[in-house]
């Protein structure tokens, strides 16, 4: 029995009085892609943000339950959320490179602010991260230009490179392709598959085909509850729950 990378136990989340995640239990395995699917407003983004303590930065937001990462509950007293977020990185739905920084600095900023001064080390990290997301060849001559001038797909890959540069173990992605064209989407999907070698990935997607293409496990959320969770093949071919089947067949959502 493999120890899960992340184990979610009785997770609940609120925005003020609004209860948006209800008693979620789930185990996420190392070096896999787990897709989170479900209709709009069912709590996918909230769930993702609970996994690296991003939920609590919203005023009035609250969490209960456990998220056990590498054997420790990230919500334990005395656990520094800053360190958790370094280990569990995040990519957002809308590409959000830092517009006032160069492409180079966008990737290097995480390391720089964590005290890496050595120029060589930074150069290497920037190059490796950009190569990993297949952006290096496209931007290697423009490293000092603003990241805001790139195309949407390039910006999103830049954001992935930025997240990877601080060497997280887990990467959370919130609909990373929803603002992108099919070619950029294909590039990022291929990238996600490649990343499973070294990373554990949890990805929210509205695109059911995308979940089927790239994920090993799929979780279906509905109205704040985890309705069904299992290997992607089983979820798509033989869903146990009627709601899951309906959602996958496109009958609602």
């Amino acid at each position: 029995m493999v120890v899960p990378k992340i184990k979610v136990e009785n997770l609940n989340a609120w925005f003020g009085k609004k209860h948006v995640l209800k008693n979620i239990n789930m185990e996420i395995k190392e070096n896999t892609v787990t897709a989170i699917i479900g209709p709009s407003g069912c709590g996918k983004t909230t769930f993702l943000r609970c996994l690296n303590r991003m939920h609590e930065i919203i005023p009035g937001a609250r969490v209960s339950g456990k998220v056990i990462f590498n054997g420790i509950n990230i919500y334990d007293k005395g656990v520094d959320p800053v360190i958790i977020r370094k280990k569990i990185g995040m990519v957002f739905q809308k590409p959000n490179p830092f517009p006032m920084m160069s492409i180079y600095d966008n990737v290097a900023i995480g390391l720089k602010l964590n005290g890496v001064r050595d120029k060589k080390a930074l150069d290497t990290a920037v190059r490796q991260s950009l190569e990993l997301v297949n952006l290096w060849d496209e931007v290697k001559d423009d490293l000092n230009r603003s990241g805001a001038n790139l195309s949407g797909g390039q910006q999103q890959r830049l954001c992935i490179a930025r997240a990877l540069a601080v060497e997280p173990e887990v990467l959370l992605m919130d609909e990373p392709c929803s603002a992108l064209d099919p070619i950029s989407t294909a590039k990022i999907e291929a990238l996600i598959r490649r990343l499973t070698e070294n990373y554990t990935i949890v990805i929210v997607t509205h695109n059911i085909q995308q979940a089927a293409r790239i994920s090993d496990y799929t979780a279906f959320f509905y109205l704040g509850e985890l309705i069904e969770y299992g290997p992607t093949k089983q979820i798509f071919e033989n869903p146990k729950h009627e709601l899951t089947r309906k959602y996958i067949m496109g009958e609602f959502g």
Binding site: I57, V82, A163
Partner: peptide, 18 residues
């Protein structure tokens, strides 16, 4: 300053004072 930039920075594991 847009929230998205702040969130991007927070998600990189950077403390607020930085």
């Amino acid at each position: 300053v847009p929230l998205s930039l702040r969130e991007a920075a927070i998600a990189l594991g950077l403390p607020r004072w930085k």
